[in-house]
Computed example of a mutant assay.
Amino acid sequence: MRQPVTIKDVAQAAGCGVASVSRVLNGTGPSSAELRKRVRDAVDELGFEFSEIGRSLQSSTTRTIGCVVPSLANPVFADAVQGAQETFQAAGYQTLLVCTNYDTESEVQVIRTLLAKQVDGFVLTVSDAASSDGLKSVQVREIPHCLLFNAAPENERSWSVDDRAAALTVAQAFKDEGHKQVGFLALKFKSSDRARLRYQGFVEGCAQYGIKEPALLEIDDDSENLTTLLQAFLERNPTLTGIFVSNDFLALATIRSARVLGLNVPADLSIVGFDGIEVGTMVEPSLATIVTDPKMLGSGAAETVLSIINGNRPPKQPEPDLSFSFRAGGSLAPPAAERTDGEKGATFSPSNNPPKKNAKIQLERSK
């Protein structure tokens, strides 16, 4: 059986000392271009691979970063993770990815597990950055970290969208189309501080533009009966003509439920989402939404963690008002004339009121 190639073998083949080989492979300390070439040629010829275990013992680092997000089913998180992973990989770090499924207890457990694995840093999206026990565990140990999508509390770093300003933009879009009564639909705020901030901004925007305070529908994280919930919501708010939904996946599910109920989008009900996922441009009607750049946000959060580890200046973040844009779509239009006069907006015949077992729609939990 062939013996594994050692760093001493590389040093002998390159005609230099072990310290010189280590310096070249670790990228630490000065070395000439000629020496680096000799070492790399020897590594390639011998098939030498650095032992991560040995390197970790020598440097007291694991070259791993914990990445914590609620879900990968939503393309927004998948794109953000890809951006972070590519940045870490280019710097010689591996990413350990875990999903919390929007569960606060799971969030604490997975973060503690990553802490036990002695990761060198964290990029994380938590349920509520102001109260997350998992985040507090990271803070108390002073592990380099950066939040992703969460608004940053005091003394924290985060790469996120200006949720409040984005929600104001949505309120203006509804106003420009002539809507007078609208609603907001999201996962329960305890599971997503992003949804809560968007609602707060939307309430402020509606007040600013002369729209009645939006009706609120919060959905439990295990709710699948969106159609039934939407029907009850619209019956409680019969003059409602539009809904701002806290993410695009949930917005697309809302459009589907509206159709099950016999409603036309946007003729009977306008829908606006949040995130700008590509599939929103491929459906009919196309989804009006707030567009973000999750891959850029993930990469920025990763660069911030690396800057803390290396003691460098953190990367500059985009201006808040440039962190998003509004994309017009076919799901937003002026309300029908009879609805603007305050008449009942939607009636549901028995044929449009399917049994609960047929009305269940699997939801992607709100970001």
Score class of each variant (00 low, 15 high):
S31C: 12
E86P: 04
V76D: 00
P355G: 13
F348G: 00
V305I: 14
W159M: 12
Q109I: 03
Q82A: 15
L297R: 01
A215K: 01
A173W: 04
V43R: 05
S71L: 08
V43K: 04
G201Q: 09
P75L: 00
I143D: 06
V291N: 12
A90D: 15
L297G: 13
G273D: 04
V76R: 02
I308L: 14
S366G: 15
G83P: 05
G66Y: 07
A232H: 15
K190C: 11
G276E: 00
T87L: 09
L261E: 09
R164W: 06
G262L: 01
A171N: 15
S20N: 10
A251K: 03
T113R: 11
D79I: 01
L35F: 03
G242M: 00
V170M: 02
E235A: 04
G242Y: 02
C16Y: 14
A337H: 10
N310C: 07
N358A: 15
K188T: 12
P318W: 10
I243S: 06
F149P: 00
E284Q: 15
P294F: 06
F50N: 10
T113A: 09
V182H: 09
P144I: 04
A171D: 08
N74W: 02
P354M: 02
N247E: 01
P266G: 02
G300T: 07
L306P: 07
S191A: 07
A165D: 06
H145P: 08
V283W: 10
R164E: 13
T87N: 11
D221E: 06
A151P: 05
D220Q: 01
R339H: 14
L197P: 02
L46I: 14
M1P: 11
T239M: 01
F274V: 04
A91P: 04
L250A: 04
G54D: 05
A253H: 11
E105P: 03
V39M: 00
E142Q: 15
Q109G: 06
Q362R: 13
P75C: 00
L147M: 10
V279T: 14
M1Y: 10
T125E: 13
G280R: 07
G276S: 14
A130K: 12
V140H: 07
E204M: 02
S51M: 00
D275G: 08
G92A: 14
T61M: 13
P285R: 09
P285G: 08
N352S: 00
G183E: 01
D248W: 13
Q89N: 15
A301T: 13
Q58L: 08
D293S: 14
Q362G: 09
Q58P: 01
A19Y: 10
L240N: 11
F202V: 07
F244Q: 01
D220K: 01
P294E: 06
A84M: 00
R112H: 07
E343Q: 05
V272I: 09
K188Y: 04
Q181K: 15
E154A: 12
T28Q: 09
A328N: 12
Y199W: 11
T125A: 09
V98C: 15
V305W: 08
T239V: 08
A166V: 07
A33N: 10
S246P: 12
A232G: 06
G329K: 03
A167E: 06
F48M: 12
T292C: 03
Q3G: 10
Y93D: 02
S191H: 13
E177T: 14
G273T: 03
Q89Y: 03
S349Q: 13
R141L: 11
A42W: 13
L148D: 05
I290W: 03
A42P: 11
I219T: 01
G83K: 00
E142P: 03
V108W: 12
